[in-house]
Design a protein around this nucleic acid. Structure first.
Length: 258
DNA sequence: TCGATCCTGTAG
DNA sequence: CTACAGGATCGA
């Protein structure tokens, strides 16, 4: 997302000349006017991603932090006047283009931070050495594997879907602590976390929940997520089960994942 | 460790 | 019509 946004931004970083927080709840607990005050008049210096957070560096010595949650979307349109009804916040550049934050369910967040701000996140799977992963596992001897993977303070970037997929790939039970897993399976999981995120970020799917792909039969890339009752893709003869963990659904193969 | 909360579209 | 989905945060 951060990369796509970078590619869409107008060249020469025109200043932001106007903006509106259409839905005040997106900046809560910050006041919409405070976010606008640090944004309007500034230009964009860089767009970065860390974990699930998008960070937009501004010349005002602020950082605009955006979390898309599930249904959020952030992009540049050539003419800000053509923003649509799901727009929760927007900014207009000096050339008339718009940076638009859309989010039908309005769960996404936008906050103004000081320069140098860093979200409290664990390492990204892509640049986490195996030894560091093992050390993190060792510090959570009783936490069920799936809850461990979804804890952003431990490891950044995996949500409900990708955690389930990585565990399936590594043949690990979502309910058992990783501290009890073999080194071999931990290695597989370490690799799977990076793989699953790389695929999710690839242009092919733009995330498993992209409207054009989600739940669409053969195009649907998830092996277990939302597949309760379907036969395991490994043809082990069992069906995918759904259990409840931390208030959310976990999908897994009871035969393959032990 | 658990549930409620936020928010709305969609599935039932 | 109600239940549920998602991620993060908060309070019991």
């Amino acid at each position: 997302m951060a990369r796509r946004l970078r590619e869409q931004l107008p060249a020469g970083s025109p200043a932001i000349v106007a903006g509106q927080i259409v839905r005040p709840s997106v900046t809560r607990p910050q006041a919409p006017e405070d976010v606008l005050a640090g944004t309007i008049g500034a230009a964009i210096v860089a767009v970065r991603r860390t974990g699930k957070h998008i960070l937009i560096d501004l010349t005002s010595n602020h950082v605009l932090e955006i979390h898309l949650r599930m249904t959020g979307n952030l992009f540049v349109i050539p003419d800000v006047r053509f923003r649509n009804a799901a727009t929760r916040a927007w900014f207009e550049f000096a050339n008339g283009a718009g940076l638009v934050f859309e989010d039908p369910r309005a769960l996404g967040k936008m906050h103004l931070r000081e320069a140098g701000y860093k979200p409290a996140l664990g390492p990204e799977p892509e640049d986490m050495p195996f030894e560091q992963f093992v050390e993190l596992v060792r510090k959570a001897p009783r936490t069920p594997a799936k809850l461990f993977l979804m804890d952003q303070a431990r490891i950044a970037g995996l949500g409900n879907i990708y955690a389930a997929e990585a565990l399936f790939a590594a043949k690990l039970s979502p309910g058992k602590p990783l501290a009890e897993a073999s080194v071999r399976k931990l290695r597989a999981l370490h690799q799977a976390m990076a793989d699953v995120l790389r695929e999710a970020k690839s242009s092919a799917y733009r995330g498993y929940t992209d409207p054009g792909h989600f739940g669409e039969g053969e195009n649907y890339p998830a092996a277990v997520y939302d597949r309760e009752g379907e036969p395991c893709v490994r043809n082990c003869g069992r069906r995918i089960q759904r259990i409840r963990q931390g208030g959310r659904s976990t999908y897994y193969c009871p035969a393959c994942q032990r």
